[in-house]
């Protein structure tokens, strides 16, 4: 068996057999909770990776679009009886639709202005979550009692929920992986490097940026819906600015532009504070320290972009064979 097959198989075994085995072994609700939260944040980090890491748009409002997905799923489920199967894709689409409306006027802004615009939009959405009591129940949040019903099957065990969340997250990450490790990813990278130059290569810069932003928001919306269904209760505080920063820190610590980096960063920033829970609630300060440390000491991140691309091409077999004369190190 080739090396790339082996790695892929290993990952599948890890996610769908090893982790569940450990969870069943400990058999505590708490561990299931951490595993699902980690999975959701891995998806959030992977989706932010596409906009901020690959396309180079510093996005400070990701948590708000994640919130849009969560609220859409929760409100549809709690008030209109629309269940998981339809609620999750609808949540993703709503987040994508809002992102599209937001992106139309702001995509022409240059780097830090775009960052500030996304911060402002994130805060506006947060104000809506917090204060539009008629729609979002305001600070009290929305309770979602309806269980996780997938295509008519009621899934009510912790293990079942883990499998559903892990499958959706894995599938989404596969899609994001294809987007960032392909020629499409190269096109997005060229925007990050020099958008004026990219336009001289025939790339429609604005359209490309909007695409990246909308796709990323779609997956943030999916993550939000998963969050709403797994916790059963959402409130505005789950989607405030500090959450956007948490997700950004995951991407920065892992390495801007690196998908495996973003996933590692998410795991690290979810699991580390849980392990240090005995010291007190120091999650946020860890986030700050790790972000600062990463920028200062590890500017390429834990798993930098260059190594990530090599990993994807060589180890996961997403590129042509790399031997010279054999034509090719491009993407498949």
């Amino acid at each position: 068996m080739s090396k790339s097959r082996l790695i892929k198989l290993g990952l599948i075994i890890l996610v769908f057999a090893l982790v569940p085995a450990i969870l069943v072994g400990f058999d505590k609700g708490y561990y299931y909770q951490i595993a699902t939260i980690a999975a959701i944040f891995m998806l959030l980090a992977a989706s932010l990776h596409l906009v901020t890491g690959v396309a180079g748009l510093l996005h400070l409002g990701h948590a708000a679009l994640y919130g849009v997905g969560a609220y859409v799923a929760a409100i549809l489920g709690a008030e209109y009886g629309i269940g998981f199967t339809i609620g999750v894709p609808l949540a993703g689409l709503s987040a994508a639709a809002i992102a599209f409306l937001v992106a139309l006027p702001t995509m022409r802004l240059m780097s830090i202005y775009f960052a500030v615009a996304t911060l402002g939009i994130g805060q506006m959405l947060f104000l809506i979550f917090q204060n539009w009591v008629g729609l979002t129940k305001g600070p009290n949040g929305v309770m979602l009692f309806s269980g996780l019903n997938l295509f008519g099957f009621e899934i009510d065990t912790d293990l079942g929920i883990y499998y559903v969340v892990a499958s959706i997250v894995a599938l989404s990450i596969l899609v994001l992986n294809r987007l960032s490790h392909s020629y499409y990813g190269n096109a997005l990278r060229s925007l990050r490097e020099d958008d004026q130059c990219a336009s001289a290569m025939g790339i429609n810069v604005t359209v490309m940026k909007i695409q990246a932003f909308v796709i990323s928001s779609f997956f943030a919306g999916i993550a939000g819906a998963l969050w709403a269904y797994t916790t059963g209760y959402i409130s505005p505080n789950d989607f405030q600015f500090s959450q956007s920063i948490l997700i950004l820190t995951m991407v920065v610590v892992g390495g801007l532009g690196s998908l495996p980096g973003a996933l590692i960063g998410a795991l690290l920033l979810i699991i580390l504070p849980e392990m240090l829970r005995s010291v007190g609630d120091i999650r946020n300060i860890i986030v700050g320290v790790m972000m600062f440390g990463a920028i200062l000491f590890l500017p390429k991140g834990l798993f930098g972009e260059v190594s990530a691309l090599n990993f994807a091409r060589r180890m996961l077999g997403q590129g042509w064979a790399a031997k010279k004369g054999e034509k090719g190190i491009g993407w498949k």
Partner: peptide, 25 residues
């Protein structure tokens, strides 16, 4: 350079989190 701008933006963001959380503690 954009890199410098974004690095300092994020490092000051990190500092702000650390300062705020320290005061909260």
């Amino acid at each position: 350079s954009r890199a410098m701008r974004e690095a300092t933006l994020m490092s000051s963001l990190a500092m702000s989190i650390i300062a705020r959380e320290a005061m909260e503690m």
